[in-house]
């Protein structure tokens, strides 16, 4: 019991360091993603810091614009909830959080990811921008073949799509997440890391850099699960080809359309941290290198390897069209099948 204050102190210190480094680092990732994408398209692309860092700073200084949402306070608060959820999600890659109330498990990660998905449904149902039904165009005065039909905001349609994506789109990601836990025969992150990197669990020196001896990524179920995880990562980030929630061609930006000025800056932070958190979780669970603020080498390794998924994402985005539900449903079913196969093999291993 004497260790409890020390643990709490360590938890607070590691959380502050991890959150600060994580948020700052996540602001660089969109720039790298956009640069890679631009190079593929034979463009120069924006400076690395512009899309993530400078745009957030710029929106922070813009004049406040109040959303026209049905419940503006709730709509505004959703983005703060979002930041809280994704930062907490990222903190699960730090060892101190593995012991907090048993949250450092598959349940904690999956639960927070599901909450993050629910946010898009709520954002979509709340937002009411002037870009569709709210536009002062005399539609009704002009007459129509169809009279008395419910007129819906594009954001509400985005909310409905978010619900569909919640139901089927993100399923592959959760299946892929299960694989390392199934291989470790435990629900705890600590066991998954210990299975791949026993040297890290036993190490006590803050300068040491124990490398994983048997990463999940280098096994057959690991490779299959990694592929599924990557596609699920794209789905959860609402990026092409699975960006149907915010398809510019019909829904413009979807539920986040009304986030302007500071709220837009916070939304960018939320999205960027999610991008980094999911990458960092991948490195922790599939390679066995956690983000340990008290072991700088491990931390740097985690940061460096966390670039893998955003770079792959950039290449995919550059070469992909937006898929509609005609393609998303079969793709999600196919990926889920691969995820189930990886799970079955991993149980055998």
């Amino acid at each position: 019991m004497e260790d409890v204050p020390l643990f709490v102190l360590g938890l607070i210190a590691s959380s502050i360091v991890a959150a600060a480094i994580g948020v700052l680092y996540s602001l660089v990732l969109p720039g790298i993603e956009r640069k890679v994408q631009a190079r593929i398209q034979q463009r120069i692309g924006p400076p690395i810091l512009t899309p993530g860092f400078w745009s957030v700073l710029k929106f922070g200084y813009k004049k406040r614009v109040d959303p026209n949402a049905q419940m503006p306070r709730l709509y505004r608060s959703l983005v703060y909830f979002g930041i809280g959820i994704v930062v907490l999600l990222f903190l699960f890659t730090t060892p101190y959080w593995w012991a907090v109330l048993g949250w450092g498990s598959i349940l904690g990660i999956a639960g927070l990811l599901k909450l993050e998905e629910v946010l898009y449904v709520l954002m979509g149902s709340q937002s009411q921008s002037f870009l569709s039904t709210g536009m002062p165009v005399p539609d009704i005065a002009k007459g129509s073949k169809h009279i008395g039909i419910k007129r819906e905001f594009v954001e509400q349609h985005s909310g409905e799509r978010a619900l569909k994506m919640m139901a089927i789109g993100s399923l592959p990601l959760y299946l892929a997440l299960l694989v390392p836990f199934a291989m470790a025969k435990s629900t705890m992150i600590r066991s998954v890391v210990a299975m791949q990197n026993p040297g890290y669990i036993m190490s006590s020196s803050w300068l040491s850099a124990p490398l994983p001896s048997s990463p999940v990524l280098f096994t057959l179920p690991g490779v299959l699960a990694a592929i599924v995880y990557f596609v699920g990562y794209v789905m959860l980030l609402n990026e092409k080809p699975f960006s149907i929630l915010k398809a510019k061609i019909d829904l413009i930006e979807g539920g986040v359309l009304e986030y302007a000025s500071k709220l837009r800056a916070y939304y960018y932070i939320m999205r960027n941290v999610l991008m980094f958190a999911l990458s960092s979780i991948f490195v922790t669970l599939f390679i066995g290198i956690p983000f340990d603020p008290f072991m700088p080498v491990m931390m740097v390794l985690n940061l460096a390897l966390s670039l893998l998924l955003p770079i792959m994402l950039a290449a995919l985005v550059a070469f992909s069209p937006i898929l509609t539900f005609r393609q998303i449903y079969p793709a999600a079913i196919g990926l889920s099948a691969i995820g189930v196969l990886a799970l079955i093999i991993s149980l055998g291993v």
């Binding site: 870009l131 569709s132 039904t133 536009m135 539609d139 169809h146 039909i149 007129r151 819906e152 019909d250």
Partner: peptide
């Protein structure tokens, strides 16, 4: 039976043309 109407415009954000689309 039509469930709802979705409308875009008067300037479509992707096509950048001055017209309004009403989809039932």
């Amino acid at each position: 039976e039509i469930e709802k109407e979705l409308s875009f415009g008067p300037v479509h954000p992707a096509l950048i043309e001055p017209y309004r689309i009403r989809l039932f």
